[in-house]
Each structure stands twice: as structure tokens, then as C-alpha cells.
Write a protein that binds this DNA or RNA. Structure first.
Lengths: 207, 207
DNA sequence: TGGCCACTAGCACGGTTGTACTAGTGGCGC
DNA sequence: GCGCCACTAGTACAACCGTGCTAGTGGCCA
């Protein structure tokens, strides 16, 4: 579906980290899953990647303070990535604080694997997942596909029902060029028609 | 884990209800999935069962008022059941009101099947799921457009990127007939392309 | 009974789409 | 410098799309 999709897992507990990594890898066979024992390492790789990762799964080695600084900063820097926090402490205050930072999911480490898997799948599908009570509104969407600027522009105009000719006029391009962007965008989304591209765009939260 | 597990689905929209029912059934092969076109019918069966259902999936045919009465009542009566609300209107106020009633999940009807499936799986695994605000807009007032059954079916298949020929095969029709449905549906929606039709369908909450 | 509507099926035609090629430019990292 | 990638522009072609016509069936309602 998306050739170079990257997922980053950071957790300082080796056993849990490896288990989590293989769980996610088996759930997303086509994705490149990288695991780290420190958040800073994951962040460093994320920044060095040609295209940003689609999913962060992070242990909460955040102090109370950095929940309010590092986490929102991560959210801002990787607007299009889904962020899931996995942690031991699942008290309401922590959940609220983390969700308020704009992450897409909060999972308790004590949860059984199938529960963690379901939660991650739901987040990757665009939902917001929290363990228990918490009406914590969360902004920003996670998306697992990356499009270039032009491709995104083209997709938005396609969603408006415009023809390639009209898109070319709108963007000040040749219709031939528009076609190439359309084809490339289709390949990125794994579709072959404009209609399917719109559906995909909506489900990915980019429309 | 679930020898006689029962799942109740209530939705007054036939096409969506059936799709939802088979989606859930395929996701939970061992469960007995019952579908209803009215909430009261589902409730009646739930009460008549020897053991309470494990999951309710309900369309939001609740008026604003009954969100604050029927829904919490259901929650109280079936404490151990998971309750998922599926609806057209996904404005923040409605989401807050429904979640405050103590349900386990809130899914927008405009969400693609895989997203709905993931959300239900997460809820069944014990999570709380709320929609990402990035997904389909559905301004209050319901859908302003009426499509015939065939037109809706055609639109749903178009959203999957199918060609007229493929749609004809799926529905057992002639490609010529499909074309007419497509054209009629376009007129109803006030669009001229498939891509725009999908966009319109999402914004109307019928996809 | 006649009118209306949804649904079915077909033909013809012009325009659009999507892909497969080539080919040049500018930016970025190694 | 070299490769890679996004972006630009073009040609050619097969397939598909959307609309305009005609025409028949069955249901519903006044």
C-alpha cells in the first residue's frame, strides 16, 4: 500500500519493547519498524528520514513536565504521524495530560497483546483510543501515507471534481504535468481511480 | 471465552445496517449477530435473552433528549456490555454528549469499513474509541440529498474505485444500466464526476 | 386508467482518464 | 561530482466516462 512506511517504537524496557516491536511488525508486514531504548534516539532517526514516520509508539518515559513540552513538540513536528503512548501508569490525570498533548492513542502496558494490537490498528485507521474514562478531546489526525505537496494539491482539486485540464489551470501547469502528478499520487495511495483516491484521502484524514 | 456470545446491531438504514452486520459477523465468527431497524426491538431481545449481549452497536436515532435518558439507562441496565454508537452527525457536542453517557465507542458512519472494524475491535478489547476530528464533516441537519437504493449502492462501489463494468458485475446489471444510475446519482448530488460524488457522499454522511 | 417513478437495456459520440514512454531542471545528501 | 527525487513538459494509445437519445417493465397513487 505504501512502500516506505516507517514505524518507530521507543521503550526502555527491553522485553516489552521487543514484544511490542514484533507485534507491530506482524500487524504491518510492509512497514519498516524500528525500535529504540530512548526517545531521543527515535526522534533523531525520525528527523533524519527522507519521509516522516507514520506512527510513533512511545513508552511514557516522560516526566510530568515533559508531557507538556516534549510530547506537544513531537505532535507539532510530525503533524501527519500517529502517536501512541504506552505506559504503566494509567491514572486519570496522566491520561488526560497525555491526550491533551494531542496524541492519537493511550495504551496501558498491562493490557493483553490483542488489546494493544486492536488499539494500534484503530489509531492507524484514524481513531482516537483511550483506556477508560477520559473525554479528552484530541486534535490532529494520524496518517499513514505521505504525498508530496503537488500530489496533495492535485488530490484536493480532484476531490472537488475538477478535470486534469481545470487542475492545470488552477495550478498554472501543463495538463500533461498534472497527469503525472495524478498517476504518481495514485501509486502512493495504492489506487487506480480518482474516486478511490478521494475515499483513501478521506480515510487517511488528509481531505 | 464466548460460547453463546450475542451482538446486537440496530440501525434504521437498511444498506448500512446489513453491511455493518456482516462486517461484525465476519469479525466475530463465533458470535450470534442480530440486526434490528429500531432500538426498541434490539432492547426487547436483549432483555429476553438468558445472558445479556456482549456488544451493542447502535445508530444514533436518539434525539438530543434521549441521549441523556435512554443511553445512560441502557448503560446502567447492561453494565457489562460494550456499547458503540454509530452515527451521521459527528459534531463535537454530540460526541461529548454520547461519550458522557458512558458508551465505549463512537464511530462516524462516514468512516471506511476498515476503520469501523478496527474501532469495534478496539472496543471489544476494552478500549474507549472516539473519532478523530480529521474525518468527514457532517453539518447538522442530516443529509439534504436523497438517493435511491441503487444509486447509493452504485456510489458506494464508485467510492471503492470500481469501474462501471465492475459495478455491473457486482450488482448483476448491464453496464448501460449502471451508467444511468451513475448519471442520475450525479444529478441528485449536483456533481459531474465520480470523485466529486465521493466527496459529496462523505460530506453528506452517506459514505 | 393514466401518470409518475425507479429500474432495466441498448446505441452513439465526444471528451476524459490513466499509463507507458522520453527528457530537461533544480535541490539535497553522500 | 553523482545519484536520487520532485517537478516540469510532451507524445501516443487504449480504455473508460458521461450524456444524449429510445424503449420496455413493474409498482404506487390518485
Amino acid at each position: 500500500m505504501d512502500e516506505a512506511e516507517t514505524i518507530l517504537v521507543a521503550d526502555d524496557h527491553p522485553v516489552f519493547r521487543d514484544g511490542l516491536g514484533s507485534l507491530i511488525q506482524s500487524q504491518n508486514p510492509t512497514a519498516a519498524v524500528h525500535t529504540f531504548d530512548a526517545f531521543s534516539d527515535a526522534l533523531a532517526l525520525a528527523r533524519s528520514l527522507p519521509s516522516p514516520p507514520s506512527l510513533f509508539v512511545l513508552d511514557l518515559f516522560f516526566s510530568r513536565k515533559s508531557i507538556k513540552s516534549e510530547l506537544p513538540a513531537l505532535r507539532r513536528e510530525f503533524r501527519r504521524a500517529a502517536i501512541v503512548v504506552v505506559t504503566m501508569s494509567d491514572d486519570t490525570a496522566t491520561i488526560d495530560a497525555v491526550m491533551a498533548a494531542g496524541v492519537n492513542g493511550f495504551i496501558c502496558k498491562s493490557a493483553p497483546p490483542h488489546q494493544i494490537a486492536a488499539a494500534i490498528a484503530a489509531v492507524r485507521a484514524g481513531e482516537i483510543v483511550t483506556p477508560s474514562p477520559a473525554a479528552g478531546r484530541a486534535p490532529a489526525g494520524g496518517m499513514s501515507t505521505t504525498l508530496s505537496e503537488r500530489q496533495l494539491e492535485v488530490l484536493q482539486l480532484i476531490a472537488q471534481g475538477k478535470t486534469n485540464k481545470e487542475i492545470a489551470q488552477d495550478l498554472g501547469l501543463s495538463p500533461f504535468t498534472v497527469r503525472l502528478h495524478v498517476s504518481a499520487m495514485f501509486r502512493s495511495l495504492g489506487v487506480t481511480t480518482r474516486a478511490a483516491a478521494v475515499t483513501k484521502g478521506v480515510s487517511e484524514g488528509i481531505l
